[in-house]
Write a protein that binds this DNA or RNA. Sequence first.
DNA 1: CAGTATCCCTCGGGATACTG
DNA 2: CAGTATCCCGAGGGATACTG
Lengths: 114, 114
Amino acid sequence: MAEKIKEECEKRLLPVRDALDILSGKWKLPIIVALFFGNKRFKELEREVKGITGKMLSKELKDLETNQLVKRTVLDTSPVAVEYSLTKYGKSLEKLITELYKWGEKHRKMIIGK
Amino acid sequence: MAEKIKEECEKRLLPVRDALDILSGKWKLPIIVALFFGNKRFKELEREVKGITGKMLSKELKDLETNQLVKRTVLDTSPVAVEYSLTKYGKSLEKLITELYKWGEKHRKMIIGK
DNA sequence: CAGTATCCCTCGGGATACTG
DNA sequence: CAGTATCCCGAGGGATACTG
């Protein structure tokens, strides 16, 4: 029956690893959080996601687009404007992000409270 | 008022970054998930967290101990046995992990369903 | 068993300059 | 504005051998 537990454990680990793969890296979740506050242009994101470089932002947005979490829309203005928004699928991360936020806040308080 | 949104966004980002810092890397969450299935010895963890090396496991466990998510207990058997368990604080990650699991599962289904 | 010590190498990610 | 192209560095992490 130790075997049973081990199998259960491994089954449980798989989806967690899958999620981690998609959301890995320093910037993906912060970008997504920013987009929860509304659609944004490239430069806006660059300003609001503190510390990110243009190159990283560009690369991460591509990854997120590939995984269908983010949608890229080119507006036919002049000069060109590009708008990034969360897809419905991207928005399905809301609960996860809320939990991440809540836990991070708790942790912060604990550290400061020391 | 665009200012307001921007500030809100930045405030929201901080705790998320904090949480990400603690939980960063390839192995921390998988180790924690494994420990949710019960206290485990070093070798058990090494077997159950597929792909991890001894060195990484050792290092990550130390980090988790430092951040008070995991407790290390030396049992006075011979040869020595060491048991790792989640602290109450570590267990407070349960909801977050559940969301991660649920989302990962959904994502997996979507990919396969294509 | 429960680790530590070394060596090594990939790759995530930063800085800077440039383009349509 | 919305990116690309280069160059470069250090940390994260793997393989292997060794220790109390």
